[in-house]
Design a protein around this nucleic acid. Structure first.
Length: 431
RNA sequence: UCCCCGAUAGCUCAGCUGGUAGAGCGGGUGGCUGUUAACCACCUUGUCGCAGGUUCGAGUCCUGCUCGGGGAGCCA
């Protein structure tokens, strides 16, 4: 008997096939019984009719429990009443394993209970939809960079004491070198690689040991970083805008049913088209102050600031050229105003906040080493990074996008922890 | 690290000014030939997070601790 995935049922109507999966739920009504089976590609209702089945098959219904694994053989029938359009008339059931007391019942559960059982929670329909959208966003990312001439450069996850300044690093022992760190960005290595390939990108995990307790933070998240030689801050913003539009378009094109299943307001995503809003930091502060924020010039935007700003506009917003004091050492000074750096943050709409941080990098050797010293960074660790400014330095820019924040926004999730299969957070290392 | 909130049945929660613990769901049994988180009837469920204290008496009040949630800072 041929094994058919539920998503392919439309090509096998009238045939006798086998579905291999897990029991999602069951119902009965006297002499007719229903098994809802999922196989990873969809759900199908399997119908058992007493008068058409031998007692041996009929009685298997009582043995089956939620999430028991099974193989059901039967004939596919188009059925208007079925959510997927098809049903399976059961001839034979092979029980693979009986699940005992599956903890996640089709009822309400609390966040802690579910996170403690994340390995099982992934089977739930909503989590299943989110992972499908995440998959599409990641594939779209790879396609975008590949199709636009970027070379994939995998950067090290174990590094010496090098990176951005502000965040805390996870530490680990490394042979005779003492302490090594888990990378919080691959950017500096991508800067090296873009001097070899022109246009490069990286995609991998980043680690932040910040003790953040918010719905926007993970200790381990997946980081997309692009870096382009001979690219200034404005051209860098153009690339980000193009990339984000592409991501949204791909999800709308290929994951529309998933978005509907997640009850995402799709019209809000259809609105994500070029051009995005571009506001200078100075103008942004004025706008926020007029809207009642008590933010002062020189400060980074707070969470509330991002929310009130993005809820006012229906497209993503670039906030451009922040004060140097609020940003990292490697950002290039604004040629007309030494208080500012050439950079941008991209804020997603609907209060989802920052999804990209970007800047033009400081390409002058003397200015960069001055900044490293001002920040009290270990100069010897940055020797190779400074080399890039000695041997054919060129203007270059890049950006970093958080995949989970993007998934959270595009899926319309309440919390980032649902946007990654196994979230790592301040109080969670299990499962 | 700081501020706020929470912990009671397998799950989600109620339990008032202190008087020996309750609902829905789940689970079990039975009924129903089209159910959609099915429905109906009956049955089943507790170290009230931990340790002290106040009291004749504490799920309830007080102190400490543990674990978690929301937010701040920081960032993607």
């Amino acid at each position: 008997m041929s094994w058919v995935y539920i998503k392919d049922f439309k090509d096998h109507v009238g045939e006798e096939v086998t579905v291999k999966g897990w029991l999602y739920n069951k119902r009965k009504s006297g002499k007719i019984r229903f098994l809802i089976v999922r196989d990873g590609t969809g759900y199908v209702q399997c119908v058992m009719v007493k008068v058409e089945l031998p007692e041996e098959e009929w009685s298997k219904f009582s043995d089956l429990t939620q999430e028991s694994s099974l193989e059901v053989t039967g004939k596919i029938r188009a059925e208007k009443r079925a959510p997927g359009g098809y049903e399976l008339d059961v001839n034979h059931i092979r029980i693979v394993q009986i699940a005992q007391d599956y903890p996640i019942t089709p009822k309400e559960h609390g966040v802690d209970f579910l996170l403690e059982r994340r390995h099982l929670w992934l089977r739930s329909s909503r989590q299943h939809l989110i992972m499908q959208v995440r998959n599409e966003i990641i594939k779209a990312t790879r396609d975008y960079f590949y199709d636009n001439g970027f070379i994939l450069i995998d950067t090290p996850l174990i590094t010496g004491s090098i990176g951005e300044t502000a965040s805390t690093l996870f530490e680990t022992e490394y042979y005779d070198f003492g302490t090594a760190f888990l990378a919080q960005t691959g950017q500096l290595y991508l800067e090296a690689a873009c001097m070899a390939h022109g246009r490069v990108y990286g995609f991998g995990p980043s680690f932040r040991a910040e003790k953040s307790k918010t719905r926007r933070h993970l200790s381990e998240y997946w980081h997309v970083e692009g870096e382009v030689a001979f690219c200034d801050n404005d051209e860098n913003i153009d690339i980000q805008e193009d990339y984000v539009c592409y991501l949204v378009l791909r999800v709308l094109d290929r994951c529309r049913s998933q978005l509907e299943g997640l009850e995402r307001d799709i019209s809000k995503l259809e609105n994500i088209t070029k051009p995005f809003h571009r506001f200078s930091y100075d103008d942004t502060i004025k706008m926020l102050q007029e809207m009642g924020s008590d933010i002062k010039w020189g400060e980074d935007l707070g969470g509330d600031d991002e929310t009130i700003l993005t809820e006012k506009y229906n497209k993503p917003i670039f906030v451009i050229n922040y004060p140097a004091q609020a940003k990292a050492f490697y950002m290039k000074r604004h040629p007309d105003n030494p208080e500012l750096v050439l950079c941008s943050d991209l804020l997603a709409p609907e209060g989802y906040g920052e999804i990209i941080g970007a800047s033009q990098r400081e390409d002058d050797y003397d200015l960069l080493i001055k900044r490293i010293r001002e920040e009290n960074l270990p100069e010897e660790a940055y020797g190779w990074y400074l080399d890039l400014r000695k041997y054919g330095s060129v203007p270059h820019s890049g950006f970093g996008l958080g995949i989970e924040r993007t998934v959270t926004w595009i899926c319309g999730l309440h919390h980032i922890r649902e946007a990654i299969p196994f979230p790592r957070m301040l109080y969670r290392l299990y499962p």
